[in-house]
Design a protein around this nucleic acid. Structure first.
Lengths: 201, 201, 201, 201
DNA sequence: ACGTAACCGAGACGGTACGTCAGGTCTTATC
DNA sequence: GATAAGACCTGACGTACCGTCTCGGTTACGT
């Protein structure tokens, strides 16, 4: 996803400055948070970063590529340690994701992602295959691990449960105003989902 | 949400043409579907609609306002007839919403809405209060109606179940590529949610 | 030159208001003095005159016609009484013209006239035939009257003398800043011209 | 009067292209002659010159400034060689000026100048001080050189004679239609002026 | 050690679209 | 049918960015 194709092998001439690279990305991120995606301009980034426009276009093909790359940086990784119980693990996952994304920048990243997916079914398909689906599998494998301990139904569709959870998190994140208390509803939502795949008892 | 503030009472001068108004909105919607939000220009709309730019700016303050207003038109209303059982009613609701929004235009509307909400916590709050919350209540009141018939838990948090469902639908809509089969996963998801609020039996 | 073609004979309906007509012309003249030709707009005139734009366009074909008509009003007529000597008569003529035109409005009128003449050789020709030439003749006939009394050369080209005088006046008017003393140089200039057509003594 | 303020000393960034500068001015002049001052548009100039609008507005603050600068270029300089006699020298001067200005462009320049002077007494004053007066002095010094040779009156007001001549030329230029024969009336006018300042003999 | 190719900041380049304003026409309701 | 108001289409205004190109100047490699 990065474009720093920099002097890989038989490079001649002055190599690209990593400092400049970082500077541009950081400034972009900063301005993204300050003025939003719509009003961000390359000229603005260049000036605030004290950098020539050419140094930006040398690294990224256009404004979109830069923004995507800048936002890419704040993408959360979840390799959470197990809590020993399903609800705990899922909550840990959700909570970590929410903490990372429940910021102006995080929301902008998500909304940009969504509008990108909405704009091209091709990208949509690729993203689903390479990101969404693996993430779903990751979550559903966690759930699967607790199949016996938590007395889940034999025929419980864990993938569906994962989707349900991701959708719930996204919805809370994107639609609920920042003032609302996400944490407790996250807990409750997870509880309900887990109950939905548990044996009737 | 509409800007056609004319002829209200003691109007003087030539009244604004409703034909022109419709023409602009329709053309906007058409072009939105054809070229997407990013590449839509007012000049394009004016030319294709056979209308002066002034006639657009007389009604809408800027490009964003026009786009929002145009997309507003395809907002789905759900006053579905009852099917006699909870799963059926919820599915009807979800299915109707999905049918309306599972189009390029519908997705663009949603993604625009999301990026707007992401951009301003003030708008976010207002939208939550005036649209999301009422919608949630509408759904949870439907669920509530079946509390006895469907043997739901006494302490079942129906609002939460509604949120779970809306989130699930949105996620399916926005992240799943158009090729996937939404309908069956919709059915299954609803089933799981309903199970999550049903008495253990 | 006026366009008030108003209900001359078998008029039907409401007759055009002379009050409106005057109002428009006066306002135009007032605004011409206030903001200048370049920045004058019909919308401005209509609003300040408390008149609909249609009422203006009903009377004048376009902005230029209105401006020309408005400025036409301040055109000086010179039917001056004779002073009994050539210098006196010519000075009276010049002085009267200068007094009328040595105002912001008068200068604007002249400069508008000049730019009109510069823009079309057809208009230029017509104006020369219908205005300049007759005026020249008028002046030269005044000079001619004094041929004997003032001992002018038999072969003196009085038409040329008239042109010389008009040109001199125009130049003083249009190029000399308002602060300069026009009157005395007018007197001197006339003296010199008269000397140029007088017998060597 | 020129706005090509670039590369003066510590210039940074790409320097402004002189080719572009010339191109714009030439195109402006060409279009000025083709369509006239009133109908000239910046967009037209940009398109015809194959230039972005920004490149024009980078150099000139607005349309007027560009037009003034373009017309400035055709301003005549008169450093004529002496003919050995007053009439000849003056005719040479006048003829040269007339030849340069007796074109659509020249007339437009003069009429634009006049309307500018009419619009602001401040500009009028400055122009008088910096252009008209020096020009007058230039001419009157030429006349003065012949004071003895041509037997001019001791008290002849040579400045006035110069004004008389300039006014005459302007008048012929601006009011006489292009079809008329300027040259011979120029000669005659000069003759009359010279006679007006010569000793009675 | 040194030439040179690719870098750097700055900013001009040809474009496109913005939102505004005015020109001249057309459409209301009112007089 | 004239009037005041104001909407209509057209098209230019001057501004802001886009992505590219061109300066003078600066590295750091490869010879």
């Amino acid at each position: 996803m990065d474009s720093n194709q920099n002097n890989v092998s038989g490079a001649r001439g002055r190599p690209r400055s990593n400092e400049v690279h970082r500077n541009i990305l950081d400034t972009t991120l900063y301005l993204l948070a300050e003025v939003g995606v719509e009003k961000l301009s390359i000229e603005m980034v260049a000036q605030r970063a004290g950098v020539g426009k050419a140094s930006i276009y040398r690294r990224w093909a256009n404004k979109e590529a830069l923004i995507v790359d800048a936002l890419e940086q704040i993408k959360p990784e979840f390799n959470m340690p197990s809590q020993g119980n399903l609800n705990g693990d899922l909550y840990e996952l959700a909570s970590h994701f929410v903490q990372r994304m429940n910021t102006p920048l995080g929301k902008q990243m998500l909304s940009l992602l969504i509008s990108t997916l909405a704009g091209s079914s091709q990208i949509s398909e690729a993203f689903w295959e390479n990101h969404s689906l693996p993430k779903t599998k990751e979550i559903s494998s966690i759930i699967d691990r607790y199949r016996q301990n938590e007395r889940l139904s034999e025929d419980a569709n864990v993938d569906l449960a994962a989707d349900l959870m991701i959708g719930f998190i996204m919805y809370q994140l994107l639609f609920k105003p920042p003032t609302e208390d996400l944490d407790s509803s996250l807990k409750q939502g997870i509880e309900m989902i887990v109950k939905g795949i548990r044996k009737p008892d």
